[in-house]
């Protein structure tokens, strides 16, 4: 690195915040999850394991809380006094919310987690030194740390199983943080194809693994910048805005509203890219 490089205006490389700065130009990937449609079947989670080479840590380590499920189905039991076989439950799929103002990004000492121009919260495995500050500051706790050397020593994938690993996704070594990427490998492939053909990615051209696997179609994914995309229409219909501060339309209407769209922990101003649609039906038994 020469002296002239060091004296260069480095502020142009500084991470800029899409909410406060310029809007996204071509892509802003976003998701919506319809909790009314979610049956808690865990297919999304399984698909995520298969797509992203997630280590299957085994019962003991799962019990110790050292699991690596980027997509987790949370089960909340109904509190109406009924006992288990009759007790209802509600489910919430939780994954990295790809926040626009991600609390994890500012605290990483080495800048291993950054915002991409597509509005993704990216994790650079090679840069990560494993301080785990990002996870400590994540309100959703959706970051997963490689507590062991899962790929090589823990027998998470027996020899014959390594053939099923996804070649598009790197396996992560001991001591780095990882999390949901919105299947960035699929996004990149679709973008490359589109670029070769001199166009933008069509709506529906790219699916995340969880979306693809969901039997009830609870997950919608797409480009929020394109006004005609399914996801943009859904967000608009629910009057959920990416840059809204503290409250969405649903929270502002007094005496309840017909709107169902909300984002988790809106008041923390992390500006998540995942919208949830409130559940309206009774919980299933």
């Amino acid at each position: 690195m020469s002296v002239s490089n060091m004296l260069e205006n480095w502020s142009k490389f500084r991470h800029m915040h899409p909410v406060d700065d310029k809007p996204h130009e071509e892509y802003k990937w976003a998701m919506s999850i319809d909790l009314d449609a979610c049956s808690g079947c865990n297919a999304c989670s399984v698909a995520c394991y298969a797509e992203n080479n997630l280590p299957v840590v085994g019962k003991q380590k799962f019990d110790a809380g050292q699991q690596m499920h980027w997509m987790r189905i949370e089960r909340y039991w109904d509190d109406d006094g009924r006992e288990f076989p009759d007790q209802g439950a509600q489910f919430l799929p939780m994954l990295c919310q790809q926040c626009e103002a991600a609390p994890c990004e500012t605290v990483c000492p080495v800048g291993a987690t950054n915002h991409t121009a597509d509005g993704l919260n990216s994790q650079v495995y090679n840069r990560c030194i494993g301080s785990r500050y990002c996870s400590a500051n994540c309100p959703f706790k959706v970051r997963y740390f490689n507590w062991y050397d899962y790929p090589t020593t823990d027998n998470v994938w027996p020899a014959e199983m390594t053939q099923q690993l996804n070649p598009d996704v790197t396996v992560r070594g001991k001591g780095v943080m990882e999390k949901c990427t919105f299947c960035v490998q699929r996004l990149e492939r679709a973008k490359n194809n589109a670029r070769t053909e001199g166009r933008l990615v069509h709506d529906g051209e790219v699916q995340t693994a969880c979306q693809q696997a969901c039997p009830t179609g609870a997950i919608t994914f797409g480009n929020l910048v394109e006004p005609e995309s399914k996801i943009a229409r859904q967000w608009a219909h629910q009057q959920v805005e990416l840059a809204a501060r503290d409250k969405q339309a649903k929270d502002e209407q007094e005496g309840g509203s017909d709107l169902r769209g909300y984002r988790i922990f809106e008041e923390l101003r992390a500006y998540p890219s995942v919208m949830y649609l409130e559940r309206v039906r009774e919980s299933a038994i």
Binding site: T106, C108, P109, G111, C128, Y133, N146, G175
Partner: peptide, 27 residues
Amino acid sequence: LGRLWQFYYAVPYPNERWVWPNFQSPL
């Protein structure tokens, strides 16, 4: 540190890759 053999990433040393640590981070 999870990867203490890479701790020097947190030191602002001039390098060929032009990668600096994140000066926003309290760590």
